[in-house]
Amino acid sequence: MLQELVERFCVALIDELNEAEYLNPELSSFPHGSCEAISQMVALYLDSKGVEEVVFTRNRAIISGRNSVHYWVLVGSEVIIDLTAEQFDEFKGSCIRLVTDSPFHSQFEQLSFSRPNLGSLVRPGIGANNIIFYKRLLSRLGSV
């Protein structure tokens, strides 16, 4: 069930990113720089579908000599859902859907985790644009 929900979300996300009339800077370079918003949206969607123990996490590591912060979704304490990992050269493979053990992710130290919350999509300077995008995404998911 989880795999199917994530796959449906990915299809709808890519379609919405490709067809949206406007994308704010956080989403316009997907997967680059969009890990926080995308992880929050995935977590919100999974939570709305009754998936238990869903959080989005904020993590930090030194990657290519730079301090890197990266977000992903954690279900329970083992399943990682990261739709933006391919933004890192160090990540090998295609976009991660579901993993329970990942050498790439094990490089990171978890700084925090948060329960899904629609208000977390509001950003200074762009306001509720991510919420509008998420609601369009939900509408699209209703027809996928």
Rank of each mutant, 00 (worst) to 15 (best):
C10M: 09
V55L: 07
F91Y: 15
N117E: 14
T100S: 12
H32Y: 14
S39Y: 03
S102E: 04
L121C: 05
Q87K: 08
R60F: 12
V73A: 05
L83R: 05
E53F: 08
D101V: 14
I126Y: 08
S114D: 13
I131F: 07
Q87W: 08
R97C: 08
R123P: 01
E16H: 11
V73D: 02
E90M: 07
E109I: 10
R58M: 07
D82L: 00
D89C: 05
H32M: 08
S77L: 07
S94A: 12
V55I: 12
N130V: 05
F108M: 02
G119P: 00
Q107E: 15
I38Y: 00
F133N: 05
G93R: 02
S102F: 02
G127V: 09
E21F: 08
I131Y: 05
R140K: 15
K135P: 01
D82T: 00
S64G: 09
L137C: 06
R97P: 03
R115M: 08
R66Y: 09
V122K: 12
Q107D: 05
A128C: 09
F56R: 05
P31M: 10
C95D: 04
F133L: 07
H32G: 04
L2I: 14
S64I: 02
K92A: 11
E90V: 05
R58L: 11
H32A: 10
V6S: 00
F108V: 00
L23I: 04
I126E: 10
E4Y: 09
A85M: 08
G33F: 10
